[in-house]
Amino acid sequence: MTTYLQVQQLLIAIEAELKSQSLWNEVMPSAEALASTTPFCIDTLHFTDWLQFIFLVKMKQLVVMQMPLPENMAIHPMAEEAFKSLTVDTRELLALILSFDQLLNKKN
């Protein structure tokens, strides 16, 4: 299985898990919020919104266009920290994010 296919499957699973845990936002953040240059847009977005509106969108574009994928992923530590305040079960989402990090770090 190609890395692109594996990435695509993980992106679909992350999206599904965000939705199943009611962490999917139907309202897009403002253009200003999305334009933040702070890592994970932490100054303007909730981490789950960053996942949905920045990470998933950009990664899907890379896969569709068969562009080079990032080689050093470290989303999981941020996800662990960001999810501490949530009351929903984020174990599956964290596992998917960790799998994503490991997949792209392994391809080096």
Rank of each mutant, 00 (worst) to 15 (best):
W50I: 03
M28C: 10
L10N: 08
Y4S: 07
A16R: 14
A16M: 08
S20P: 01
M67G: 04
I14D: 06
L10R: 07
L23W: 05
N108M: 08
K19E: 11
S30F: 07
S36I: 01
A95P: 00
T37A: 09
M28E: 14
D89E: 11
E17Y: 04
K107Q: 15
H46F: 09
A31T: 12
C41P: 02
H46S: 07
Q52N: 02
D101W: 10
A79P: 07
N105W: 10
E92V: 10
Q6T: 11
S20G: 00
Q66K: 15
L98E: 14
E15V: 00
M1K: 13
D101P: 08
A74H: 13
S30P: 02
A79I: 05
E71P: 00
L98N: 12
K58I: 03
R91Q: 15
A35H: 11
E17G: 01
L23Q: 06
K106W: 09
K19V: 05
L103E: 09
I54V: 15
F40I: 10
L104Y: 06
K106R: 14
L51G: 01
S99D: 15
V7Q: 04
C41D: 12
E17A: 01
T38V: 14
K107H: 13
A13C: 03
L56N: 06
Q52G: 01
Q61C: 03
M67A: 15
Q8C: 05
P77G: 01
K19C: 01
A33K: 09
Q102V: 08
M67P: 00
N72I: 13
L10W: 05
W50T: 04
A16T: 10
E26H: 07
E92P: 00
E92A: 09
I75D: 06
L93E: 07
M78Y: 12
F47N: 02
S30H: 08
M73Q: 14
E81Q: 15
I14M: 09
L51W: 06
M59D: 02
L104M: 03
K19G: 00
L5R: 11
T2L: 11
E71S: 09
K19D: 06
K107W: 08
S22I: 10
L10C: 05
F100D: 07
L98C: 09
T2N: 15
A95K: 12
V57S: 02
K107F: 04
E81R: 15
A95G: 08
M65T: 15
A33P: 00
T3R: 12
V63G: 04
L94S: 04
L34E: 05
L5I: 07
F40S: 06
A13R: 13
K19M: 06
L94E: 13
W24T: 00
A74G: 09
L69H: 12
R91C: 06
Q52H: 05
T48Y: 12
L10G: 08
K107T: 13
D43G: 01
E26M: 04
F40N: 08
Q61L: 08
M28Q: 14
L62H: 12
